[in-house]
Design a protein around this nucleic acid. Structure first.
Lengths: 227, 227
DNA sequence: GGCTATACTGACATTCCTGTCAATATAACT
DNA sequence: AGTTATATTGACAGGAATGTCAGTATAGCC
């Protein structure tokens, strides 16, 4: 006795349940919206806030729709990882390629820092690392490549700069360490920066000064070691 | 890793129902063991691995025992936060007070870095920050105090050093920024350090060199600005 | 030894979340 | 228009996790 059509039968105008016109998107569009919502939730509430029903509500769909586009919750997570990895790689490479004209090596660091300290991305990546899910990208473990490419680009930049100005060849490990420091500090800032600044009584402008200060410090270091 | 300490069957092997002799601990001891297990799980598996039943199994008790000692799962989390905060504060203050004899300001930074980059603590704190649960400590918002105390201690140290050597008074904000950089970098390293080093083809020894390099860099900076 | 306080347990209730399925509606195409 | 492919949905199944409770056993004390 289950097949009693409750209220969805003929078009009775029940004020209670207007069948709520469906919006049918392309698969690509739907996937994008879902990933956006998931990323936003992740950034706002952390990993425990990543529930299919919540995401679905954010997008304005029902949760099985998510299961339809991504095979499972895990599939959604993997897609999220993948997209974040790719976006991060693209941004970093763009930052590296963007200021070809400038011969100031620090611009690279500065841009890398900006990209990495993006709150959403860093928090997402951090969560992945904390949960041990890193480098699950389907296409490639972009981590390796990105790190290598960045250091390589920085090193070449420094060498060119040194040659042009008749300085001695910069130490490769020094370049690597500089990049690592920038990456570490950027990640750290994305995670604890806000709390730290607040605890220190620093406002938004103070945080900006901190970045400038840091950039100058790296610059001084690079100048010193390249002398 | 399949070998979990699962065997709690007392030496007797009764086929039917060995009532499994109970171990009755003091409340304090039980709480400590539970918190230890929870912290270990959190460090190993991230926030999603924090399940009462798992923790109970680790300790060798039943999960209602945890509910008995901490009111709820949330109570356990709060206790965990509290203990981590206090431990961090103690360690930091100890690191600051420990080398009173040394007049090298960098030793402070070095110790702070060591303490902060402790994998377990940093990951725990990071998770708390990521989930937006920071500063829920019952006794006090230790975050404020610790940050303020550290900067204050560093500043006094620098001023004393400057006065003794006839240097100009160091800038307070510079001291703050130095502390922030150390904290950011330490946190970042605790989270992404391993992956980053791996991506860069750096072994354990390389990581050590990185820390030395970073300490030297900060030292140089402090010397320069204090001149 | 007996008594008491309470750390501890097994079984159950409840809630929440992922995943399945049959059915439906809509965009695209002929 | 009709037809098709598939994005989407409501309802339900299954499982897992937290929380409740009445009862049990053990350490400390007389």
């Amino acid at each position: 006795m289950s097949s009693v059509d409750k209220d969805r039968a003929t078009t009775d105008e029940k004020p209670g349940k207007p069948p709520a016109k469906r919006i049918r998107r392309t698969a690509e569009e739907a996937r994008r919206l879902i990933l956006d919502a998931a990323e936003a939730r992740l950034a706002r509430q952390g990993p425990e806030g990543l529930r299919l029903q919540d995401i679905a509500r954010d997008v304005g769909i029902s949760h099985p729709a998510i299961l339809h586009h991504f095979e499972s919750r895990d599939g959604l997570v993997r897609a999220l990882i993948n997209r974040a990895n790719n976006q991060l790689r693209d941004k970093l490479l763009a930052a590296l390629a963007g200021d070809e004209k400038s011969d100031d090596a620090m611009d690279h660091i500065g841009h890398v820092f900006e990209v990495l300290s993006d709150r959403g991305t860093a928090r997402l990546l951090s969560w992945l690392l904390l949960t041990g899910r890193a480098a699950e990208g389907t296409s490639e473990q972009s981590g390796h490549n990105v790190m290598g490419e960045i250091v390589e680009a920085m090193q070449q930049r420094r060498e060119a700069y040194a040659k042009e100005h008749g300085l001695r060849k910069p130490d490769r490990e020094d370049t690597l360490f500089t990049a690592m420091l920038a990456a570490n500090a950027a990640f750290g800032e994305a995670i604890v920066g806000r709390q730290l600044a607040e605890a220190a009584g620093l406002n938004q402008d103070g945080l900006k000064r901190f970045r400038v200060w840091f950039a100058k410090m790296l610059n001084d270091h690079l100048d010193d070691t390249a002398e």
